[in-house]
């Protein structure tokens, strides 16, 4: 059994690694109530299977997603960015954060097989994995401007 507290830290550390290296934006855990949760309108997800099976999700507002994509691509704020590029960037965030999570879980969970990410308009990751599943969510403040959510929904696989 993987401790939820450990997973919270692991998700946060993984996100920090990616945002510091590839996005060039400051990130910190958000301890305030999630009053901005309704702003979350883009949901990036990536699934994994192995000793643990489930889904990692990153949820943020459209303005936040645009800011992330522009930073990743080095685009000036006065320039335009295509919606496709914004979605693609959020998918890559999921992919890279999942890669970091996978690396950090390798010792306790072994090798996890990871899917290709997908991005949809949405607000909440619903748990439909049935009994025995767990959900860990970390609220993350980006650049003191955007509140986002990073979630890990999983169950331990007995196969």
């Amino acid at each position: 059994m993987i401790e939820q507290v450990c997973l919270n830290e692991l998700l946060l550390e993984s996100a920090k690694e990616i945002f510091e290296t590839m996005v060039f934006m400051d990130l910190a855990e958000c301890t305030e109530p999630a009053e901005n949760a309704e702003d979350c309108a883009l949901l990036g997800t990536i699934t994994f299977k192995g000793a643990l099976e489930g889904c990692l999700a990153f949820c943020c507002s459209v303005p936040c997603a645009r800011a992330i994509a522009m930073n990743m691509l080095g685009i000036d704020t006065s320039e335009e960015i295509a919606e496709e590029d914004v979605c693609d960037a959020i998918g890559e965030i999921c992919n890279m954060v999942m890669g970091s999570v996978k690396k950090r879980l390798a010792e306790s969970a072994g090798n996890l097989e990871v899917s290709i990410p997908s991005v949809v308009s949405g607000r909440q990751l619903k748990n439909n994995m049935g009994e025995g599943s767990h959900k860990t969510t970390v609220k993350i403040n980006i650049e003191d401007e955007y509140v986002t959510e990073l979630s890990l929904l999983y169950h331990e696989n007995s196969n």
């Binding site: 496709e84 590029d85 890559e92």
Partner: peptide, 11 residues
């Protein structure tokens, strides 16, 4: 497969 990642690699 990610156009964004191709741009990031080029950058």
């Amino acid at each position: 497969d990610s156009a964004t990642m191709r741009k990031i690699v080029m950058r």
